[in-house]
Amino acid sequence: MFLPYKSLMNVTPEQITTIFLKHFPSEEIKAISEIQQSFVNPVYHVMLSNHEEFILKINNPCWPNKSLREVIALSLVKEKTTIPTPELVAFDFIKEAVPWKYLIQKKVAGQELREAIRLGKMEYTTFLEIIQAIGRYLGELHSISFNVFGDFSISSPRFSSQGASPGVFWGKQFDDWCSCFQAFCLDNLNWVDQSSFPNYRPALRKKIQEFSRAFPRTEKSCFVHSDLQPTNILVEDGKIAAIIDWEWSFAGSPSFDFTLTQAGIYYSAFPSISGSKMYDQFPSLSREQFNQALLAGYQSTNKFDLVPQPTELAEFIWLLFLIGSWDWCVQASSAETVKELKQNVHELYQKIIT
């Protein structure tokens, strides 16, 4: 089976040098280091001779419009919100310097929210203030509206789509949220692995239909991040320095995105079906307090009445993603981790389906 992972992209230091010479011809590269946490795109931290630091993101060609979507997203967010994001320095979608599309951002000073908490560098009150700030920014983001659902990168007046991503979701648009949700779920279920857990797949496809029928047909379309979790939130001096990784954003449901954000931050690192150990140093933190802080922040910038979502929806989405990328998980994880992930798959399936 072909697995479209970044490990199959042989990016050399010479090619990275070529990219930076194009945009910074008077500077030399002082240091290059790969950011290992990135799974799909090769991502590099690059320091130049003038000590400026940048993040280079090279677009995995199996998802040809990821960089385009991120550029459009960053442009919209900068124009219409106060959300802090990395500064976009340069991009190339015509593959002039190297055989891949890419974008370059200024490196943001700060560290991942999860890491800051793990290292004990955050007080309980500061954490709740950050959760409220996330809610405020999410409310601003959901104020950006669209006339369709799905991939907003294929209708931008400034950029044109160059190639369609495989699957049933990316590169496509939908008239209603129900159709968009179905395509989004099927895309997750078949992301890079269409064969693992074959006995579970028919019931999961049926569950997708059940969920989609429960959504109101009048749900509005707005800008959703879809991957807002602690690894994509950078903090500095007790405040949010930047929200990053916008390549999976799309035109979707505000209620759905709010639910995903709740779960993504509270659980910290999917797949988990219990509160994250990340918050062990906050023994008084309850799920209710967490939800109240996020909602209070959201309602301060967006008066939209969020539609209650099924309680197991966020876990269901993660179950689809985990099964749909199982071969990837096996290759990227230790035997012990794979055993734990497999147990999580079985537990989530039993909880949601049976």
Rank of each mutant, 00 (worst) to 15 (best):
M1I: 06
M1L: 09
M1V: 11
F2R: 05
Y5R: 13
S7N: 15
L8Y: 12
Q15Y: 05
Q15C: 04
T17S: 04
F20K: 03
F20Q: 10
L21R: 15
P25D: 08
E27T: 02
S33L: 03
Q36Y: 10
S38F: 06
N41P: 10
M47F: 02
L48V: 07
S49Y: 08
S49A: 13
F54H: 12
F54V: 08
L56H: 14
C62V: 03
W63A: 12
S67M: 05
L68C: 06
A73H: 08
L74G: 11
S75G: 10
L76Y: 09
L76D: 10
V77Y: 04
E79Y: 07
T81I: 03
T81Q: 10
T82E: 09
T82C: 05
T85A: 08
P86Y: 05
P86H: 01
P86C: 01
L88K: 14
A90P: 14
A90D: 15
F91S: 07
D92P: 07
D92M: 04
F93R: 11
F93D: 11
I94F: 13
E96G: 04
K101Y: 04
Y102M: 01
I104K: 04
Q105A: 07
A109C: 10
A109P: 06
Q111I: 07
L113E: 14
E115L: 05
Y124I: 02
Y124H: 14
T126G: 09
Q132M: 06
G135A: 00
L138Q: 15
H142S: 09
S143A: 07
N147K: 09
N147P: 04
F149D: 06
F152V: 01
R158I: 00
P166N: 02
V168W: 01
F169R: 06
Q173A: 13
F174M: 08
D175A: 15
D176W: 13
F181I: 03
A183I: 08
L186D: 07
N188A: 10
L189G: 12
N190C: 03
Q194H: 13
Q194W: 10
N199I: 01
N199V: 04
E210P: 07
S212C: 13
R213W: 06
K220P: 03
C222K: 03
V224K: 03
H225R: 06
S226T: 14
L228D: 15
I233Y: 09
L234Y: 11
V235F: 13
E236C: 05
G238E: 12
I240M: 00
A242F: 12
I243Q: 14
W248L: 11
F250T: 13
G252K: 09
S255L: 12
F258C: 09
T259D: 08
Q262P: 02
Q262V: 00
F270Q: 01
P271A: 00
I273Y: 15
I273Q: 13
G275D: 11
S276V: 03
S276H: 08
Y279S: 10
Y279K: 01
P283A: 09
S284M: 02
L285A: 09
L285S: 05
L295M: 02
L295W: 03
Y298Q: 01
Q299V: 00
N302L: 02
K303W: 00
L306R: 00
P308L: 01
E312K: 04
E312L: 05
E315W: 08
E315P: 10
F316V: 12
L319R: 04
L320R: 02
I323C: 09
S325P: 11
V330W: 07
V330G: 11
V330E: 14
S333Q: 10
A335S: 13
T337G: 05
K339R: 12
E340G: 11
Q350A: 11
K351N: 10
T354I: 02
